[in-house]
Design a protein around this nucleic acid. Structure first.
Length: 136
DNA sequence: GCCAACGTTGGC
DNA sequence: GCCAACGTTGGC
């Protein structure tokens, strides 16, 4: 059963456009146990919302898990993992943080309840709501 | 094993 | 640029 997720990235560091240009990317550098736990739970084929933090503060695109969790090569301790993501599509309209906060159906979203979490789960209902808000 | 201090993230 | 929230680290 496929799950849905949301990952955050500062577009200045790595934007959705960068992912589309690269064709794929290794999602490493996560140094938070809760987020790492979510990375480990990802399965190939799971869909992932791509959120731009700091600049934009909006969900801009959809990506897909291409490779399940493997040791993060940038982590010397060996405690953290990375996954590989590929771009799926850019959303017709981005969905801003303000829009999500203003939507009662999304009030329980993990990313809203815990702002600093860089990788978080998205329920099927939340997923459908956000895609609809994005004009799909 | 607990708790205080510190560092980092991210929204405003 | 500031401030709040939260996770991690290190001392006891």
């Amino acid at each position: 059963m496929a799950s849905h997720w949301l990952v955050k990235s500062e577009p200045e560091t790595y934007s959705f456009e960068d992912l589309q240009k690269d064709g794929k990317t290794v999602w490493d550098g996560v140094r938070n146990f809760a987020a790492a736990g979510h990375l480990k739970a990802m399965k190939v084929g799971d869909q992932v919302l791509f959120y731009h933090s700091q600049e934009g503060k909006d969900v801009v695109g959809v990506a897909r898990v291409a490779k399940e969790a493997f040791p993060d090569a940038t982590d010397a301790t060996g405690k953290f993992v990375a996954v590989e993501l590929t771009p799926v599509r850019k959303l017709p309209r981005s969905v801003t943080l303000a829009d999500m906060k203003a939507t009662p159906a999304l009030s329980d979203m993990a990313m809203l309840r815990q702002g600093r979490l860089s990788v978080s789960p998205v329920s099927d209902a939340e997923w459908a709501t956000i895609l609809k808000m994005a004009g799909e």
